[in-house]
């Protein structure tokens, strides 16, 4: 009898084990779906391993992972900034931390383009493989306790499913894909890079990168904005917003003829673009070509649309200036 009992117990154990295993696998698939999907299926063109050993390490002071993470990637991009300097741009003393929006806004103030990645681990790996360290937002908390943290991914090994991070006090923290994805999930897989204007992120798409580059209009570094728009147009030559941005930054730099040339090209590509025509009219008028400016503004006005108020202002200004000039003459 004891043997029967034994056998029964053994099969019960085995059954339990199978159920447990199933739960674990199931649990992983639920908690870390990207890791599970990536397992054994390396995305095309992605090297098996990469590590950016030259990325500097700024050991984090209390609460200062935001400034430390930013300093890490901006230093690698060629800017000499300390976490202390960046704390003045992103750190919120009363909240003991830094907001994602400010992490994206700060590099702009130094002429770098911030790009929020699509929420995919594969894209993070691709950026790292292309030489771009990636800032990620993690929640290292447990249960109801959230513990938000920024770290910088500097390397990975696909076969071993491992990531290498500059994180807090850790110069080279090793985390499995699964463990990382679990902490990455709560922040909706948020990740960013910040790169010099002429360097387009590896995973950039036209729509996402257009927003990133358009945000450079907020940068005090007009030349950086111009370079970012120019790089964008070189990749996607018929982009209306990028042409407008390039012309505006040339205009702001005082390069009126360059602005005019960009807008004329854009007007040929987008003959019904009200913003292009409006800005072209402005660029012409600022060079003293009032008659032609007026004609262009009138054409923009006839097209209607949501920018009508702006166009009417432009037209009226040109008109007044022309009248004043002829009055003098």
């Amino acid at each position: 009898m004891p043997t029967t009992m034994n056998m029964l117990m053994r099969s019960a154990h085995r059954a339990l084990l199978v159920v447990c295993l199933a739960l674990v696998v199931q649990g992983c698939a639920v908690l870390t779906p990207q890791t599970v999907a990536l397992r054994g299926a390396r995305p095309a063109g992605l090297p098996d391993a990469a590590e950016l050993t030259a990325v500097p390490f700024f050991p984090q002071e209390d609460y200062q992972c935001g400034p430390a993470a930013l300093a890490t990637i901006l230093d690698f991009a060629g800017l000499k900034l300390t976490p202390e300097q960046l704390a003045g741009e992103v750190y919120l003393p009363e909240r003991h931390g830094s907001l994602q929006v400010e992490m994206l806004a700060s590099p702009r103030r130094h002429g770098m383009v911030s790009y929020e990645l699509a929420p995919r681990l594969a894209d993070v790996l691709r950026e790292v493989a292309a030489g771009n360290p990636v800032v990620v937002l993690q929640d290292n908390g447990v249960g109801p306790f959230s513990l938000w943290h920024y770290a910088v991914i500097v390397g990975y090994d696909f076969s071993r499913a491992e990531l290498y991070l500059r994180s807090g006090p850790g110069q080279r923290l090793v985390k499995s894909f699964g463990a990382f994805e679990y902490t990455w999930h709560a922040g909706r897989h948020w990740a960013m890079v910040a790169l010099p204007p002429a360097r387009i992120p590896e995973t950039a798409t036209q729509d996402r990168y257009r927003s990133a580059v358009s945000a450079m209009e907020r940068s005090p570094d007009r030349a950086a904005a111009r370079d970012a728009f120019a790089a964008f147009l070189a990749r996607w030559p018929d982009d209306e917003a990028a042409a407008v941005g390039l012309a505006n930054s040339q205009h702001a730099l005082g390069n009126l003829r360059e602005a005019e040339a960009v807008l004329r090209r854009a007007a040929a590509q987008h003959p019904d673009s009200v913003p292009v025509l409006n800005n072209l009219a402005q660029a012409l008028d600022d060079q003293g070509k009032g008659e032609e400016a007026l004609a262009v503004a009138e054409r923009a006005l006839r097209l209607g649309g949501p920018f009508q108020d702006a166009v009417r202002d432009t037209r009226d200004t040109i008109f007044r200036r022309l009248r004043a000039a002829s009055g003098k003459g």
Binding site: R210, S211, V213, S214, A215, E217, F229, E240, A241, A242, V244, G245, A247, N248, H251, V274, P275, N278, N279, Q282, A283, F307, A310, D313, T314, T317
Partner: peptide, 9 residues
């Protein structure tokens, strides 16, 4: 006088 890329984008 000019319309920004942010608006066009």
């Amino acid at each position: 006088g000019t319309i920004g890329a942010e608006q066009v984008a």
